[in-house]
Amino acid sequence: MSIIENHQTDGEPFCDSPKLKARGVGVFYGDKQAIFDVSLDIGANEVIALIGPSGCGKSTFLRCLNRMNDTIDICRITGEILLDDEDIYAPKIDVVPLRARVGMVFQKPNPFPKTIFDNVAYGPRIHGLVNHRHELEEIVEQSLRRAGLWSEVKDRLDAPGTGLSGGQQQRLCIARTIAVDPEVILMDEPCSALDPIATARIEELIDELRDNYTIAIVTHSMQQAARVSQRTAYFHLGQLIEVNPTDLVFTKPQHALTEAYITGRFG
């Protein structure tokens, strides 16, 4: 199962109306290369699933898309990533507004040790999106509604966010992200710490969010990828092996590695 040098991605890595375009992206941690020459489009208002065995670089690639890797000193990125045809690694680009446009939801729910209200209001406050308390309340309510959490927490907005259950916490984190009105939402295995019921709830939510946002989701669950995504990208040891419409990937994988992975020969 060796890696083919300079592998050309199988399938359709590019699409018609791309929101994000990655071209020849490589990622290095110090001297070690974690991602090799990845080119991929993420279309507007689509859900793209990034799958692959653990350590394949799918999370690393996702974190490149809003420059979360900047917080790691030894991390270096080559190639280019374009958001609406603008290179997000260009020197003049400020990561702060970039991250406001490309939000992120993490593997483990990480609500701030604040109230539920303040958790959601955090983004709008720091970005100065509102001028009045009632506007803020409106945004908080709207975001919580969209995240499907409003009915559960509307009576206890002053309770600490850390007191919620795991699934609720993750939905709170999603609400927190959509409160700043991003264009793209990146989700890094958002359900890996949750039970099946909470997972189903989040998957529903992702489907609803697709109307307004572009979503890239990293998942280790093939069923989840099949349920929520339109396109699926398969990563293997830092290389993008195959990108195809999701039903195609799971019914007729083009590449032998993809087939091996989805049939469970490794993972």
Binding site: V96, P97, A100, I126, H127, G128, L129
Partner: peptide, 21 residues
């Protein structure tokens, strides 16, 4: 939606100078 996105973007951009300071 596009309108709202643009206003969000411009609001964020507006605040950047202050926040950088």
């Amino acid at each position: 939606m596009t309108d709202q996105l643009t206003t969000t973007r411009s609001k964020v951009e507006q605040g950047m100078a202050r926040r950088r300071r």
